[in-house]
């Protein structure tokens, strides 16, 4: 043994080391199993960035669980659940879509034991999904193009002699078409679909349809349209940066992002914890400071200063100006209405 040079091994030592090496992955695996990696399916963009900056990093600090993101395609969700190979732990999407997916049995029931339901907006806590923020489909205009005073309601948007930008989907757009036609905001639902199309008929030649949010913002910023409907979060930052765009919340249709846990999600328990954290007043406030999508937890408003609150659709001041989209209505009628809308478009 004494003449053994450094680095040389006896057979027995070598075997012992090999045994030890084989233990390494196991030793390593013990802490790794405590911290898991959640898969979060989102629409990407600014929204996902803000989740990462706020609630995801807070979740990592609290539970040491990592979160990776992926695209939130409904078709993939359905395929995964059908084949029993679910990879996602949480899905974010427009509430009017998630309610349809929930009815098709693609989600786990939400566990509300750790969530303060009393402070949530009415309608936020649903069986298969929870609303997480409030955005607005609201009146917007290009300040450089606008002739005369800014439109104060949808009827004035409709009456504007110029180009009117609208989202090329029946959801939200039919609501504002009815408001423009003089339907009182309290009597909006159930939507009178035929009347909505008649209202759209009146401005058909003036409409510039936009298909995606980024494109919608662009048509307002570039002056492709004069007035119209746009989501507040898409024009908020450009307005602050000095772009010729402005908006108000009069007769706005409030719409929501929602989160849901896919049926058979591998980390169901952790996903429910993540949702509870995301709905906590602190995280709701942190999110709203980054993006002008308002909290669904009323307690979060107390944590925000007036300047931020003025930008949020769900602040007390702004929320009474508009109306929340009726999810149940759209869950019942989206297929038939989409069919009619497509027929109207090409007709």
């Amino acid at each position: 043994m004494k003449n053994k040079t450094a680095g040389s091994l006896t057979r027995r030592e070598a075997l012992a080391m090999m045994g030890a090496v084989s233990l390494v992955p196991w030793l390593d695996a013990t802490p790794a199993q405590a911290a898991s990696q959640l898969v979060f399916a989102s629409g990407g963009g600014k929204l996902e960035e803000t989740y990462k900056k706020t609630v995801f990093s807070a979740f990592k600090e609290k539970t040491s669980n990592d979160i990776v993101t992926t695209a939130n395609e409904g078709a993939k969700l359905k395929a995964m659940v059908e084949q029993g190979q679910v990879e996602w732990d949480m899905m974010q999407g427009p509430a009017e879509q998630l309610i349809v997916f929930g009815r098709q049995g693609l989600f786990e029931p939400i566990d509300y034991t750790n969530i303060d339901k009393a402070n949530l907006l009415p309608g936020a806590a649903n069986e298969f999904f929870a609303l997480t923020d409030v955005a607005a489909y609201n009146i917007g205009w290009n300040t450089a193009n606008l002739k005369g005073p800014a439109p104060q309601n949808w009827a004035e948007v409709w009456a504007y002699d110029g180009r009117i930008g609208l989202w090329k989907k029946p959801f939200q757009t039919l609501e504002v078409a009815l408001l423009a036609d003089g339907v009182a905001i309290a009597d909006l639902y159930p939507l009178d679909i035929e009347r909505a199309f008649k209202s759209l008929d009146k401005i058909k030649s003036k409409i510039v349809w936009w298909e995606r949010g980024a494109q919608g913002a662009q048509v307002f910023l570039d002056g492709e349209v004069d007035v119209g409907a746009i989501w507040n979060g898409r024009v908020h930052q450009p307005k602050l940066d000095g772009a010729p765009v402005d908006f108000n919340f009069n007769q706005a249709v409030f719409v929501n992002d929602a989160w849901a846990v896919p049926k058979g999600a591998p980390h169901k328990k952790e996903a429910m914890e993540l949702l509870a954290l995301a709905l906590s007043p602190e995280q709701q406030a942190a999110f709203a400071r980054e993006l002008p999508y308002g909290p669904v937890n009323r307690a979060a408003l107390a944590l925000l200063d007036d300047k931020v609150k003025a930008t949020l659709p769900s602040s007390d001041e702004n929320y009474k100006k508009g109306r929340l989209l009726d999810l149940e209505f759209w869950a019942d009628n989206s297929q038939a209405t989409l069919e009619k809308f497509n027929s109207w478009l090409i007709g």
Partner: peptide, 9 residues
């Protein structure tokens, strides 16, 4: 629309 939004496959 049918495959991804309405899920009427």
């Amino acid at each position: 629309q049918q495959a991804n939004v309405i899920l009427d496959w």
